[in-house]
């Protein structure tokens, strides 16, 4: 039965300390955004109109899908299916690349419109929150890529796959944060 709740945290315990710290950082940033928004309602609502929700929604789908592939990769390595694990990680990375491309286009669009951190408070939050998350996607992808290469070299099997779980946990955190960030900054007015 899978209702037993006795397993240790998946992956390395140290990554969880890191994940908790990261969640705290994002949590504080989200609340800071919400408070500032409530103080400048009109300004925020006005500039929110110019954000690109289509790519935002697409990016949500991409991150969810990549998380799904990572789950498949973890399940595969538990059955010693190395090739499936590698494929899962590869597809997850592909989705990650898609995210980065869409986001880069969005940023370059904003930059070419002359929008900077100092343009106004809304854009300051928009740029710093999304860019901070963007950097996390890159970091997560670096970790996934490292695991992919190790998996391909045969470093993991059904007994020893802590590394895969470690990277997976971090990647899901990046996904989780976006699940809140996207509606908060792009949708709610």
């Amino acid at each position: 039965m899978d209702t037993e709740r006795t397993k240790p945290l998946p992956g390395d315990f140290a990554i969880w300390i890191f994940i908790f710290a990261e969640l705290m950082v994002f949590g504080v940033l989200f609340i800071a955004y919400a408070v500032t928004r409530s103080l400048h309602r009109e300004e925020f609502a006005y500039y929110q109109q110019f954000l690109d929700r289509e790519t935002g929604a697409l990016n949500t789908l991409l991150l969810i899908t990549s998380s799904y592939f990572v789950v498949k990769a973890v399940l595969a390595i538990k059955q010693d299916k190395v090739q499936q694990c590698v494929n899962g990680l590869g597809l997850a990375l592909l989705c990650g690349c898609g995210f980065l491309v869409a986001k880069t286009l969005e940023f370059s669009d904003k930059f070419s419109a002359g929008i900077r951190l100092s343009t106004n408070t809304f854009y300051m939050f928009y740029l710093s929150l999304t860019f901070f998350h963007f950097m996390h996607v890159i970091l997560g992808m670096v970790i996934l890529a490292a695991i992919l290469f190790k998996a391909r070299a045969g470093a993991y099997n059904h007994r020893e796959h802590t590394g895969v779980e470690t990277g997976a946990s971090y990647w899901h955190m990046v996904d989780l944060v976006w699940i809140i960030l996207f509606p908060l900054v792009y949708i709610i007015r």
């Binding site: 710290a21 950082v25 504080v28 951190l117 300051m124 939050f125 710093s128």
Partner: peptide, 22 residues
């Protein structure tokens, strides 16, 4: 310096105790 440093500086430096606590 520009205003936004008040936000960035406050939020990120408020997290600086974390590595020391770790």
């Amino acid at each position: 310096t520009p205003d936004y440093w008040q936000w960035l500086g406050s939020v990120f430096s408020a997290m600086e105790p974390i590595p020391f606590f770790m």
